Computed example of a mutant assay.
Amino acid sequence: MSAELSRRAGHYAAAVAESLLEAGLPVTGIQSCGPWHDADGEYLDVEAGISFTQAFQDRHGGGDCGLHWTGTSGWCLYTASQQDRYLSGDRWSGAGLLPGPRLVADFVDAFRLDPAGAGSSDQPSHRREGQDFSLLLDALAPYLPAQPCLFEDPQIRFADLHRHAYDNRVRRALISSASDPLTHLSLRQGELAALLHLLEYAESSNPSALTRQLAADLTARADRQTRTPETVRPPRPGR
Rank of each mutant, 00 (worst) to 15 (best):
residue 218 L to K: 04
residue 50 I to Q: 12
residue 121 S to R: 15
residue 196 L to H: 13
residue 121 S to H: 12
residue 185 L to S: 02
residue 30 I to T: 14
residue 136 L to N: 09
residue 24 G to L: 12
residue 219 T to Y: 10
residue 23 A to M: 08
residue 208 S to N: 06
residue 76 C to S: 11
residue 191 E to M: 00
residue 147 Q to S: 08
residue 191 E to T: 06
residue 71 G to Y: 07
residue 229 P to Y: 09
residue 219 T to N: 05
residue 4 E to Y: 12
residue 138 D to I: 03
residue 193 A to P: 00
residue 9 A to P: 03
residue 110 A to V: 08
residue 114 D to Y: 07
residue 20 L to D: 01
residue 222 A to F: 10
residue 16 V to Q: 07
residue 127 R to Q: 02
residue 51 S to Y: 01
residue 122 D to M: 02
residue 134 S to R: 15
residue 108 V to R: 05
residue 211 T to H: 13
residue 14 A to S: 08
residue 115 P to K: 13
residue 120 S to P: 03
residue 38 D to R: 11
residue 155 Q to W: 12
residue 187 L to S: 02
residue 31 Q to M: 09
residue 236 R to Y: 00
residue 60 H to F: 15
residue 16 V to E: 10
residue 62 G to N: 02
residue 129 E to T: 11
residue 35 P to E: 06
residue 199 L to S: 11
residue 171 R to H: 09
residue 116 A to P: 00
residue 236 R to S: 01
residue 64 D to G: 10
residue 102 R to C: 03
residue 71 G to H: 07
residue 135 L to Y: 05
residue 20 L to K: 04
residue 86 Y to W: 10
residue 26 P to I: 14
residue 185 L to A: 06
residue 99 P to C: 00
residue 2 S to Y: 04
residue 160 D to Y: 13
residue 182 L to I: 07
residue 151 F to G: 01
residue 123 Q to V: 12
residue 133 F to W: 15
residue 198 L to S: 10
residue 213 Q to M: 13
residue 215 A to T: 06
residue 230 E to G: 03
residue 42 E to D: 08
residue 117 G to T: 09
residue 198 L to H: 11
residue 192 L to C: 14
residue 195 L to M: 12
residue 212 R to E: 13
residue 186 S to C: 06
residue 230 E to M: 10
residue 36 W to E: 10
residue 78 Y to W: 15
residue 88 S to P: 00
residue 226 T to R: 15
residue 166 Y to C: 05
residue 94 G to W: 14
residue 118 A to D: 01
residue 222 A to L: 10
residue 60 H to S: 05
residue 63 G to A: 02
residue 233 R to I: 01
residue 47 E to Y: 11
residue 186 S to E: 14
residue 105 A to Y: 01
residue 167 D to Q: 15
residue 75 W to Q: 07
residue 161 L to M: 11
residue 88 S to E: 04
residue 16 V to H: 09
residue 207 P to L: 04
residue 48 A to L: 09
residue 234 P to N: 12
residue 11 H to N: 11
residue 188 R to H: 14
residue 135 L to H: 09
residue 61 G to F: 01
residue 172 R to A: 13
residue 165 A to V: 02
residue 64 D to F: 10
residue 121 S to N: 01
residue 100 G to A: 15
residue 93 S to N: 06
residue 32 S to M: 08
residue 231 T to Q: 12
residue 139 A to D: 14
residue 32 S to C: 05
residue 123 Q to N: 06
residue 115 P to A: 08
residue 99 P to V: 09
residue 221 R to L: 13
residue 194 A to N: 01
residue 188 R to N: 08
residue 221 R to Q: 14
residue 151 F to M: 02
residue 191 E to S: 07
residue 98 L to S: 03
residue 191 E to W: 04
residue 154 P to I: 13
residue 74 G to K: 10
residue 83 Q to R: 09
residue 101 P to A: 09
residue 65 C to P: 00
residue 102 R to I: 07
residue 212 R to Y: 15
residue 217 D to C: 03
residue 195 L to W: 11
residue 11 H to R: 15
residue 147 Q to D: 06
residue 82 Q to T: 13
residue 16 V to W: 13
residue 48 A to S: 14
residue 12 Y to R: 12
residue 201 Y to N: 01
residue 15 A to H: 02
residue 70 T to D: 12
residue 167 D to Y: 13
residue 234 P to M: 10
residue 35 P to D: 00
residue 126 H to Y: 15
residue 239 R to C: 09
residue 42 E to S: 08
residue 237 P to F: 09
residue 129 E to V: 10
residue 169 R to M: 05
residue 221 R to D: 08
residue 42 E to R: 14
residue 118 A to W: 12
residue 136 L to W: 08
residue 107 F to C: 01
